[in-house]
């Protein structure tokens, strides 16, 4: 985790640069939010518009959800930044156990 402290002799120059960097990052966040809303609209439209088969809709909306969650995790939750290796380990271990549970309940459990 890089701890970006001021290196400049004049903190105001550094401040200007950081403000600009923060504003730029915020712009990326808004873009990823727009994309997330777009994916959501697509998913709702796929279900709302009559005529698509189940076999088409289900995988497509699941894929849209996965893409949206990747945006959420990597942009909104900052996983794209440096120093998130341990964090990724935590999340993906949780995800691995979770997905195996879902797989098991969908295949070898029957009621």
């Amino acid at each position: 985790m890089a701890n970006e402290q001021s290196n400049s002799a004049n903190p105001n120059v550094d401040l200007k640069y950081r403000r600009k960097k923060n504003a730029e990052e915020m712009k990326h966040q808004v873009i990823s939010f727009t994309l997330m809303i777009f994916f959501t609209l697509l998913a709702f439209a796929a279900v709302g518009i009559e005529g698509f088969s189940h076999w088409f809709i289900k995988p497509v909306i699941l894929l849209l959800a996965v893409v949206q969650v990747i945006f959420q995790l990597y942009y909104f939750m900052h996983m794209k930044h440096k120093g998130h290796g341990t964090i990724a380990l935590f999340l993906f271990s949780g995800l691995a156990v979770g997905l195996i549970t879902v797989l098991v309940f969908l295949t070898i459990v029957w009621i």
């Binding site: 271990s93 949780g94 995800l95 156990v97 979770g98 997905l99 549970t101 879902v102």
Partner: peptide, 8 residues
Amino acid sequence: GGETVLFA
């Protein structure tokens, strides 16, 4: 990570 397992 634990919450992920819980919700899954």
